[in-house]
Design a protein around this nucleic acid. Structure first.
Length: 746
DNA sequence: GACCTGCTGATTTTT
DNA sequence: TCAGCAGGTC
């Protein structure tokens, strides 16, 4: 190995700039890499890992933690390309949650769990909390379940236990939360389940309570690398600190300017204070940007400079000055969607591909109107993020059935499916079963077998309960003998979930069947392609994966996603929509300096995704909650100096703005009626030509997702108030709001 | 216990 | 707007 060490090192260092080389070569001791957007961060990480291996460390002694699965996969792939699959596969690379969960399964005994524990996502947690609130009989005020869940999660992220919190709680609401928190912890433990936060906390508890395990993993992970360090929370920081304590070979990479997860407990002071926390720390700054044009970088810098709390730095680039940034003012969100689609078609004519273009927005709700417009113009697109496949009800139900096979203690999974499809075990029977189970210290499956001892449950309910539990038991046993897809398939078929939807027969129900089939196909695929497949392994994989991660990004599609999802990606052309007052930054963040700064960082992330062209737009009105609210340019727009921009406005393309009362029904956000009439912005703007009215007209045949085919027989109103009456085949006349009825022209 | 209806509140972002 | 829930009815 030694003979070719230098030449290998040379290969690894080839093509890196001075700063990147420096970062790669410092492998011992704490290292903070401040990596600006587009500065080759992943390149440095992967080359650094290759360098560590090349200097004699075994791949299995390297731990590389990322924030998302997407980032982890990219990292693995690029390391593989660099050092070869045979070495790369031994590196511990993954998200905090997946790696820690993997270790926790191995060491489950040390924290009094069994290794088949379930992992609860946010919906599962909320459902447990709903259950607890019900049993507490909190009649005096209805607590918002999600608010409670967020509160508990944020307490956990800050490492505040239910006991600590109970001591601190003062108001009656805080006391309720403390009570729920305590029950929630007990509940999950009894279910042999952990939520996302528990994975981090239990990992820390494990390291703290067992010195041998601490030593074991400190020796296992001789080199630790953390990506997106600005997004770590207190628990993650502590876990890393514990793991690296014996050797301090800890390298963190991050950019404080791209910290956008404060709301989820990310603590930006982790990166800001890294140098104090880890003495003798070296710092390398990567400030050369290889991605964007000078105009884009300058604009990004101008905006982010308005933030107070940050590590001073300025990105520079050798790239061209490039096109100016286009800033458009549109009349409303429908015009925005139409114009965005037109813009895309123009760029296609200019020689770009659909896959070169991304449309970014602040909230998922904004995607709908954009989608409609893209569809009508036959522009292929792919939504990244949004509601996950695994969050669909039918998939969650199927998942719960499977979870019961692996973890029969999971009462939450039991509750979810015991009466889905209806088996005659309603809320009353369930409540009795739960009381009995609690009293006798059984899980609900076990309680089912004892149902004869519960006098309140008799007849059909009693019979069903035993049948249900027997079925779970039987298949669970079969699965222990033989981990095969066929067993799983039989079991799911036997639940009658699919037959239930078949009976319902609506298009929605048929969709659900398709989804379940697709899910089963995925399981089949897993069983066929893995060496040592097991259901528990499969379930573990998917609970920590959102389906963004395995979306095929290689097709020729325009990408649509939230600004958060866009982090880490880059596109030749980026279109950021809805850069509006009240929407971006979100209204509620306006008065909170820290939250406002986070919104600004989010904007910065969006802007720096663009390689050569960037376009921003805002609307004067936007449909919200089926109503229309008055918007206007975001303050971020005014933070970009005019010299980097082209600005254009429209007075309302397809229709003349109607100043109807209804436009002002919802709270005008910062613009009053008189201001609104002065739609003409300052002299930096030029007027956009009107867009062609290719809107639907009377006599057109249209298609609706629920009602099917129909013909427009009447059209009334303007703009957001536009309505059509459609005569649908076999259904008859329906009056629809044009902006909400997803009509497509046939 | 199942099913229907009408009301309410959500819309930030995700492991 | 629309999903999800509570409460009422059969």
């Amino acid at each position: 190995m030694n003979s070719n060490l230098n030449s290998n090192n040379d290969i690894i260092l080839k093509g890196l700039n001075d700063k990147q080389t420096e970062a790669v070569k410092i492998i011992n001791g704490p290292l903070l890499i401040i990596a600006g957007a587009g500065s080759g961060k992943t390149k440095v990480l992967t080359h650094r890992i290759a360098y560590i291996i090349d200097n004699g460390t075994r791949p299995s002694n390297i731990l590389a933690l990322t924030f998302t699965n997407k980032a982890a996969n990219e990292l693995k792939e690029r390391i593989s390309n660099l050092v070869g699959e045979s070495k790369a596969k031994y590196i511990w690379a993954g998200t905090f949650h997946s790696i820690f969960a993997r270790i926790l399964r191995i060491e489950a005994k040390s924290i009094n769990y069994s290794s088949n524990f379930s992992i609860y996502d946010t919906d599962d947690s909320a459902s447990v909390i709903r259950q607890i609130i019900k049993t507490l009989n909190l009649t005096e005020k209805s607590l918002n379940i999600n608010a409670v869940r967020n509160k508990i999660s944020s307490l956990k992220n800050k490492m505040i236990s239910s006991m600590d919190y109970a001591l601190k709680a003062e108001t009656s609401e805080e006391k309720f939360v403390a009570e729920i928190y305590k029950k929630y912890e007990i509940n999950l433990k009894n279910n042999n389940a952990m939520d996302f936060d528990d994975i981090l906390l239990n990992f820390i508890n494990m390291l703290r309570s067992d010195k041998n395990l601490l030593t074991k993993y400190q020796e296992q992970f001789k080199y630790i690398l953390i990506d997106e360090y600005q997004d770590t929370n207190k628990a993650q920081y502590l876990a890393i600190k514990l793991l690296s304590k014996s050797h301090n070979n800890l390298c963190v990479v991050g950019d404080d300017a791209q910290s956008i997860y404060r709301w989820r407990g990310a603590d930006i002071s982790n990166i800001l204070d890294f140098q104090e926390e880890f003495p003798y720390c070296r710092v390398v700054r990567l400030e050369q940007n290889y991605r964007s044009t000078k105009n884009i970088l300058n604009a990004a810098h101008s905006v982010i400079s308005n933030n107070q709390r940050q590590i001073p730095k300025k990105l520079w680039t050798e790239n061209q000055v490039g096109d100016k940034i286009d800033i458009f003012q549109y009349a409303d969100d429908r015009e925005e969607a139409t114009r965005v689609a037109n813009l895309i078609n123009d760029e296609i004519e200019n020689g770009y591909n659909f896959k070169d273009i991304a449309i970014l927005y602040r909230t998922n709700a904004q995607s709908l109107v954009l989608e409609n417009s893209l569809r009508s113009k036959k522009i292929p697109y792919l939504i990244i993020g949004g509601t996950s496949f695994y969050k669909r009800k039918e998939i969650k139900d199927t998942l719960a059935y499977l979870t019961l096979l692996v973890n029969p203690s999971d009462n939450e999974a039991f509750r979810r499916v015991i009466n889905e499809p209806p088996r005659g075990i309603g809320l009353t029977s369930l409540r009795n079963l739960e009381l009995f189970a609690e009293y006798n210290n059984l899980n609900l499956i076990e309680a089912c077998f004892e149902v004869d001892n519960i006098p309140e449950i008799k007849g059909k309910a009693s019979k069903s309960a035993i049948e249900f539990a027997s079925k779970v038991n039987e298949y669970s046993r079969q699965l222990i003998n033989e981990q095969s897809y066929d067993v799983i398939f039989d079991y799911i078929l036997g639940t009658d979930l699919i037959s239930m939807f078949k009976e319902i027969g609506s298009s929605d129900a048929l969709d659900r069947i398709t989804n379940i089939e697709q899910f089963l196909l995925d399981i089949k695929n897993y069983f066929e392609t893995n060496e040592n497949p097991s259901l528990s392994d499969y379930l573990q994989q998917i609970t920590l994966v959102s389906d963004i991660d395995d979306k095929d990004l290689t097709g020729n599609n325009v990408s649509l996603m939230t600004l958060h999802s866009a982090k880490g990606l880059e596109y030749p052309i980026v279109i950021i929509t809805g850069v509006e007052k009240g929407l971006f930054p979100l209204e509620r963040t306006r008065l909170d300096q820290e939250e406002l700064e986070e919104e600004r960082r989010l904007f910065y992330v969006g802007v720096t995704r663009a390689k050569s062209k960037l376009s921003l737009s805002y609307c004067m009105r936007r449909a919200k909650f089926g109503d229309v609210s008055v918007q206007g340019p975001s303050k971020f727009v005014s933070e970009i100096p005019v010299e980097y921009t082209n600005r254009a406005f429209s007075t309302g393309g397809s229709f003349v703005p109607q100043r109807q009362e209804s436009y002002f029904k919802s709270k005008p956000q910062g613009i009053n009626r008189d201001e609104y009439s002065q739609i003409m912005p300052d002299e930096n703007y030029s007027q956009l030509p009107p867009i062609a009215t290719n809107e639907l007209k009377v006599g057109d045949w249209v298609k609706h997702s629920n009602f099917g085919r129909g013909k427009i027989i009447q059209k009334t109103g303007f703009g957001a108030q536009e309505r059509v009456v459609v005569n649908f085949d076999g259904i008859g006349n329906k009056s629809l709001m044009l902006q909400f009825a997803k009509l497509t022209k046939m």
